[in-house]
Design a protein around this nucleic acid. Structure first.
Length: 747
DNA sequence: TAATTAACTTAGCAGATTTCAA
DNA sequence: TTGAAATCTGCTAAGTTAATTA
């Protein structure tokens, strides 16, 4: 494995932690698989940033000692079974509580045979879920709904009394009986459906449509060729979309303007069409000013007015923002239909500026239970269709006109249906952990294969594993921005150097990935990989595919054979999570204070974000806020030296006077110095953290790639309040992990 | 078998809201 | 109390993957 520093595993071990299924017999907190098994010594080098200004995190050594030769992926089955037992145990503990819940809800978990077909079953792949539905649906119809996820967390209500009062009046009274959501529903303690159905009962109120167009007041004019011109409603509405974006770079781009103008003309009457032939002669500034003034006015509204709006939004949220799924009231993620506007693609999108049509009732498909109260379409309109498909999770869908793709309304991440899936995702990644050594050994072997397709597959997989590249589906040309992932890399996206900057076999990647975020990375690879790349590139044009015998479908089929549920993206999840765990182990020092520990956490998080190439535009106010912080630091330093001076003189004073009062003064001064020192350190840490974070986005990995149980365990281990790591939304999303992970959880 | 479609996850950004400091 | 900065949230585009269709 010499050349591969990304994955240099040495299996250190500590037998003591060796563990397997028998462990699960003990009563333990191991709600999840706890096996102190793998750890790896791994060095993930990286100087990868889309942008050269990035701080360099290369040379972060990610280290993790592996204890166990848990080589065989298939071995995880018994464990799952044990875990299932564990679950049972927990359930017993919770029995009294549950009994209560059941009664209240009239809801009981479906009776399930204790001996599941196989332990694997809890995390079965969707494929195994083919059984016909046989449960009695009526069990799932709510007799009384439990109110959870109610936005009204105690903390939530800032203007406490007021809101409450008003709500009583304004919001629909019944649901809002303002009970504390006594118990949050712990869906993770319940059985999962095994028949492939996503729900048994689903009821909701349908989507909230975009507000109808509100025509401009007559004094706000559009000018063509210098002359005012009254537009027809449709043409005017479309024009307002453009006018609202006047400040944006988009409106200066040729493609944007061209697309917009073309679609705009479609909205015009024939007279308008005849007259308006050149976008450059259009003057939207009055409209622009009008909207700007409006938004300004909105900011200037009185408190009462603002409150009124807030309450109205809350009312809509309460009415449309929740659904009833299998006896629980669950929050919907996006219950509003996307309003019309101009399409803003990312990067160099060929369709930017096109008109995103208004969605009408007759475009909308509703999905709900047959026996639920179906959502009512607005008066005088009809849904496109009402269907009852419980094999899917969406409540509402429509087809969007730019790409012709389907948009969905689905549940919030805090919901059972999303949470289960998320949990399952991390379990799959953990199964990969158990066999990743084997897989690595295999792809290394495959580099030598006589078959080109095998070699390509093996090299691609190596990149996906080592560099956390995305799979890289082919895309239709001209439909979207030209971005690539691993399988779709082209020759022009890399340079290879037998020797560069003192390193051998260097590959330099430079391409646009998802969202047209640049991926730039220079990385030494093993000789075999290098030779293979040379071969793949031979006799090819820059625009030719690097892996011409490979696509995501072939790759994933291969992965599927290596492990049930394994796909390319599992590697990203796995490598992200394992990196976090290793980095936390490495960076956290026990005697640091809380602030420093959190900095360590952020650094670990940052290592992952860099691995996954999660970038952000530096905040507009970055320089300024950095400056402000520096000013503060300087001031604090002055304050510190003052305090120190005072301490010194008080000490001198005490020496002379030798009375109690003087002694006390010394104590007080000492404390003051300490306090200021702490404050100073906090500021300095903050500055470091912010600087390092300039163009790295931590949120994406935190939300999508890092097994939350790792973070929860870390918090528990070091007595860090979980609020320091996860904000409210995140805590809701990861409630399952917060509840189940103990301080010794291992990914 | 390849192309297309459907479903769902992942992504960055912008505006809203909250927090902080003067 | 106010305004600026920090943080959160909603939005929706852009991916991945599996299923379906040609």
């Amino acid at each position: 494995m010499s050349g591969d520093n990304a994955h240099n595993h040495s299996q250190l071990d500590s037998g003591s932690r060796y563990n397997d299924s028998h462990k699960h017999k003990e009563k333990n907190k191991d709600k999840e698989h706890k096996h102190k098994d793998h750890k790896k010594d791994k060095e993930r080098e990286k100087s990868k940033h889309g942008n050269s200004e990035h701080k360099d995190f290369s040379d972060k050594k990610h280290r993790d000692k592996d204890k166990l030769k848990h080589k065989d992926g298939s071995s995880d089955k018994p464990r799952d079974k044990d875990k299932y037992k564990d679950k049972e145990k927990r359930k017993d503990e919770k029995k009294s509580l549950e009994g209560k819940i059941k009664k209240e809800n009239g809801f009981a978990s479906p009776p399930r045979i204790k001996s599941e077909p196989d332990g694997e079953d809890f995390y079965h792949s969707p494929k195994s879920l083919k059984r016909e539905r046989d449960d009695d649906e009526s069990d799932y119809k709510p007799k009384k709904i439990k109110v959870e996820n109610d936005r009204e967390d105690k903390k939530d209500i800032k203007p406490k009394k007021k809101t409450k009062n008003k709500k009583g009046e304004v919001a629909d009274g019944k649901k809002k009986a303002k009970k504390e959501p006594e118990e949050k529903w712990k869906w993770w303690e319940e059985e999962r459906s095994t028949d492939g159905s996503k729900w048994k009962f689903l009821e909701h109120k349908g989507p909230v449509f975009a507000a109808p167009y509100d025509p401009l007041p007559s004094n706000v004019k559009f000018y063509y060729d210098g002359k005012p011109m009254k537009l027809s409603t449709d043409a005017e509405e479309t024009a307002t979309f453009f006018s609202k974006m006047l400040e944006h770079d988009y409106t200066t781009k040729d493609i944007f303007r061209k697309n917009f103008f073309k679609d705009w003309r479609k909205e015009m009457t024939s007279e308008e069409k005849a007259k308006i032939t050149d976008l450059n002669k259009c003057n939207f500034t009055e409209m622009y000013e009008y909207f700007k003034a409006q938004s300004e006015a909105r900011k200037q509204m009185s408190k009462a007015e603002k409150l009124k709006i807030k309450e109205e939004n809350e009312r809509i949220l309460q009415e449309y923002g929740f659904c009833i799924m299998d006896n629980h009231r669950e929050r919907i993620a996006n219950f509003r239909i996307e309003p019309p506007g101009l399409f803003r693609g990312r990067g160099d999108h060929p369709k930017m500026g096109m008109l995103k049509r208004r969605i009408r009732t007759q475009d909308v498909i509703i999905n709900c239970s047959k026996d639920s109260k179906h959502p009512k379409p607005p008066p005088g309109t009809k849904w496109k269709e009402v269907r009852h498909d419980n094999k899917v999770t969406w409540l509402v869908s429509w087809t969007e006109n730019i790409q012709g793709s389907i948009k969905y309304i689905m549940l919030n991440p805090s919901s059972r249906i999303k949470g289960e899936k998320d949990w399952q995702k991390y379990e799959t990644a953990r199964r990969l952990k158990k066999i990743v050594d084997r897989i690595r050994a295999q792809y290394r072997e495959d580099w030598k294969s006589k078959e080109m397709r095998i070699r390509q597959r093996a090299v691609a997989l190596y990149f996906i594993d080592k560099l956390a590249l995305r799979a890289g589906n082919e895309k239709e040309e001209g439909e979207t921005a030209d971005t690539v992932g691993c399988c779709s890399l082209r020759v022009e996206h890399m340079n290879i150097y037998p020797e560069k900057d003192g390193q051998e076999y260097v590959v330099e990647f430079d391409f646009l990935g998802k969202d047209s975020i640049r991926y730039y990375n220079k990385v030494p690879v093993e000789k075999r990989v290098f030779k293979n790349l040379q071969l793949f590139m031979e006799n090819k044009q820059p625009e030719d595919d690097l892996f011409d015998r490979l696509n995501t479908s072939i790759l994933n089929k291969h992965l599927q054979e290596l492990m049930d549920g394994l796909t390319a993206k599992v590697f990203r999840t796995y490598n992200a999570s394992i990196t976090l765990q290793q980095q936390l182990n490495e960076l956290t020092s026990p005697d640091e204070n809380l602030v420093a520990k959190i900095l360590s956490y952020n650094r670990a998080n940052r290592a992952v974000a860099i691995l996954c190439n999660h970038q952000r535009a530096p905040p507009k106010t970055f320089e300024k806020s950095m400056q402000n912080l520096q000013t503060k630091i300087d001031a604090k330093k002055d304050q510190l030296s003052d305090a120190k001076r005072e301490l010194k003189s008080s000490k001198a004073d005490a020496k002379v006077r030798r009375d109690e009062k003087a002694k006390k003064t010394v104590e007080v001064k000492k404390k003051a110095v300490q306090r200021i020192e702490e404050q100073l350190m906090k500021l300095e840490v903050q500055a470091t953290d912010r600087e390092e974070n300039k163009q790295i986005a931590l949120g994406t990995s935190k939300l999508n790639y890092l097994d939350p149980r790792i973070s929860v365990a870390w918090c528990k281990k070091w007595s860090i309040p979980i609020e320091k790591i996860y904000n409210k939304t995140q805590r809701e999303k990861f409630a399952w992990a917060i509840d189940m992970a103990e301080d010794d959880y291992e990914f």
